[in-house]
Structures are given as C-alpha cells and as structure tokens.
Design a binder for these strands. Structure first.
Length: 418
DNA sequence: TCTGGGGTCCTAGGACCC
DNA sequence: TCTGGGGTCCTAGGACCC
C-alpha cells in the first residue's frame, strides 16, 4: 500500500466520523425561573442564592426538582424531599415549577440551535444533540460549541454546557464534566485521561441497582469497567452488560434522531393529596386521568392497543395491570371501560392508595386501523362525541369540560393544560 | 411535612401453535 | 414410558433516563 493510499484512507476515516454536540441547560428549571423572574422585575437572581424548584408539598409531591449551585454546596440533591433539603439549609428558598414556562424557554433554545443544523434531537426539555457533520464548512466543531455557548448566554440569558465529541455518548459525558457555562471535548484519545478515572456511577445508563453489583466485582471506575472482560459482562448482565462495556470504552453508533417521532405510549398519573381506599373515588380519578390521556392520544391522531393501570399503595408498593384491546381505539368511553375493569381486577379492597396512573401503549396511526363492518357505526358515534369535547377544550382550555364532574375537593386532581 | 411525573426499553414466564 | 423445541404473543415488573 502506498503512502498516498494510507493518507487517503485516513482522510476518509476522519471524515466519516460524526461531529456531535450535546447542549445541556445548567439547572434548567431553576435557571429559567431566574430569567423569568428577572424579566418580571425581580431584584434577586435565584441562581446566586441557595434556592430550589420544588413540587407542591400540600399535594405530597414535595421533592427537589432543580437546585442552584449554592443549594448544591449545602449538599442538597435533586429528588430528595424538601423537608430534607431544609434540614441541610434552613434559609433555603423554594419556588414552584411551571411547565408551560419551561416549554417556552426550551423552544427558544431549539430555535437558536436550528441556526446551526436542522439535525437536532430533542433529548429532553433541556437537552439537545446536534449532528454537525457536513455543516462545519471549514470551521471546527469546538469553535461552533463556543459560539453556541456564548450566544445562548447573551441572547437568552441562561447558560448551557456543551459537550463536543464524535458520538452521542461521549458528547453527553463531556457536557456533564464541570459546570456551569462550560465547553468540554471528549475525543477518543481523551477517553483514558478524562473518562476512565471517573466513578463508574457517572456512566450513562448505570443506575442505583447496577452500581452495587459492579462494586461487588471490584469495578469502581469507568476505566475498571472498560478493562473488564467483555464476554464476562455479557454473561452477567446480558444486553445491558454489553452496552455498559461499550459505553465504558466510548463506543456508541447511535444516530442523532432529529425527525419528530410520535410517542410510543402516553400516560398520566397523580399522587393523591390523601390516601384513598374506596373504589368510587378511585374511579373518579381514573376517569379524569383517562380523559386527559385519550385527549392527548387524539391530538396525535393515534389509537391505543393496550390499556394500563398503575396503583401505588401508601407503602410505596407499585402494581400495574394491562390489557390488550380487541380493537385499537382512542375513545374515552371504550378506554375507560377497560381501565375500570383493570382497576377492579387488581385492587384489593381496603388498601390505601397513594398514586393512581393510567397509560395507553402499542399506539398506531389512526389510518392504520381496519374497521370491521359491525363496529363501524359505534366507532363513528364515539368519535363524534370525543371530537366535540376536544374542540371545546381546545377553545376554552383543558379544564372547561370534563366528564369527571363531581370530584371531591380534597381529592381533586390537578389537571394540566395539555 | 419523607419519597413527582412522563417516558423507553428489556426480561421472564405462561399460553399457544406448529 | 417418553414427554422436544422454536417462535410469537401477552402480561407483570424492573431499570433507567430527565
């Protein structure tokens, strides 16, 4: 092989590498709340004081959803109770969440990022992957990352971390390095120095159940995992084992999924303000949840094949039951009938219930349905009723019309505008 | 005044069919 | 007098993500 050939092959290999950025909003809910408050004329920036965004304690949802750096310095972590957080920092400020506002800021970020590439995967409300391959035009990926970082701060008022790499995994790991307002690279040659010394719990997809098992195998750092025998990992953990071994070695061939995808399942659940142990009240809440879920289902133009009900007891024991439908549907009535049956089938009389949830799965496009001659008429009738209800909701707001009429005030579930 | 809510994907066992 | 085994569908539950 000639020198030229080798050069050419190297050139192709380098060029085939994907150019990936991961943009991650720092303390998203808290930062966005801060920006919004400043815009409303507030004279404090809650990013600069010990503060958190928290759930509603009166509804038994009092956990930390996001924290300021100062709150973090007190040892406060996301997911813990506000009660615990206040024990660590008595002068902690707590602000409520506002999903509608978050969505607006998320959209602003997305619009800015669209100026760099249209290959953007919205990974969550505050994270995006950008496929910058073929968009660099002589500029470097790192320069683009710095530019995005600066522009977001200047134009939108909040900060982001940007991870720079050749695949999604490494870009995401990189954006998670030091925070806030930073740009980090994690190229293949940097894996041993930047990623392998990290505790294995920092690796994506390694959660609280897997970590102790790895510790038992004397795997403490990502490097330990990377150097563990691949076949042993597969033997012990199956598919998951292979994936974590590949992640530890920086291997990830997944594409930036930039096309809008309809959901594969839709669900709503709610923690009840007080435990409930009687069926009629559980049914009322279940109906309200079903209306909410089927409304969203119809907005997507989808039909459900599976109905699923979840119950959580006051002791935090979860149960789910699901049922495949004879025919896919989006009808509130038909789905509620199934949900109600599932509730009866799984509920042990007298058990105090803390949370109730319902979801639909195995969704298909409405036009994929083949209607049999016999149920055509009934389906059309149900469709009409649901359509009228949906249009009223569109026009006057979600809570205007509901079949779950007489919810008792103390159990009234908060319905979100969807 | 302990412990949210919305998702996706995987596993495992039983039923059923060939 | 032995009781296969592959494939698919269905259901329950678990793990993980933000």
């Amino acid at each position: 092989m000639t020198q030229t050939n080798i050069c050419f092959i190297m050139y192709v290999v380098i060029n085939m590498q994907k150019q990936i950025l991961h943009v991650d909003v720092n303390n998203a809910f808290l930062s966005w709340t801060a920006v919004d408050m400043l815009k409303q004329g507030s004279n404090i920036d809650i990013r600069e004081i010990p503060a958190v965004i928290g759930g509603d304690e009166s509804r038994r949802a009092g956990i930390v959803l996001a924290k300021s750096p100062k709150a973090k310095m007190f040892g406060i972590s996301t997911g813990e109770t506000l009660y615990q957080a206040r024990m660590k920092c008595p002068r902690l400020k707590v602000y409520p969440g506002n999903y509608k506002m978050y969505k607006q800021y998320s959209e602003k970020l997305y619009q800015l990022l669209l100026q760099y590439t249209d290959k953007i995967e919205r990974f969550s409300i505050d994270e995006c992957f950008l496929d910058m391959t073929n968009t660099l035009l002589g500029d470097t990926l790192l320069n683009k990352a710095y530019e995005i970082n600066k522009r977001v701060k200047k134009e939108l008022g909040f900060t982001v971390n940007v991870g720079v790499a050749h695949n999604k995994l490494l870009a995401k790991m990189a954006s998670d390095f030091t925070k806030p307002d930073r740009v980090h690279t994690l190229f293949e040659e940097e894996i041993p120095s930047k990623m392998w010394p990290l505790p294995v719990s920092d690796l994506l997809m390694l959660g609280r159940k897997t970590i102790p098992k790895l510790y038992n195998m004397r795997i403490k750092t990502i490097g330990d995992l990377a150097k563990t025998d691949k076949t042993l990992m597969i033997k012990k953990f199956g598919k998951h084992g292979l994936m974590m071994w590949e992640y530890a070695n920086g291997i990830d061939n997944s594409e930036v999924n930039y096309k809008f995808e309809k959901p594969k399942g839709i669900g709503n659940s709610t923690t009840l303000p007080v435990d409930i142990s009687d069926i009629p009240k559980l049914e009322e809440v279940l109906l309200a949840l079903t209306e909410q879920v089927t409304y969203r289902l119809r907005k997507y133009g989808l039909l459900a094949n599976v109905v699923n009900v979840q119950l959580r007891t006051k002791d935090f024991e979860d149960k789910t039951h699901q049922r495949k439908l004879v025919q896919a549907t989006s009808s509130t009535k038909d789905i509620y009938i199934q949900a109600k049956e599932l509730l009866h089938e799984m509920y042990k009389i007298g058990t105090p219930i803390r949370l109730i949830g319902m979801r639909v799965d195995n969704l298909i496009e409405k036009d994929e349905l083949q209607l049999s001659f016999f149920n055509q008429e009934n389906t059309e009738k149900q469709d009409k009723i649901d359509k009228v209800v949906d249009e009223l909701k569109q026009k006057y707001g979600y809570n205007t019309i509901t079949r779950a009429g007489k919810l008792h005030s103390e159990e009234k579930i908060k319905l979100k505008d969807v």
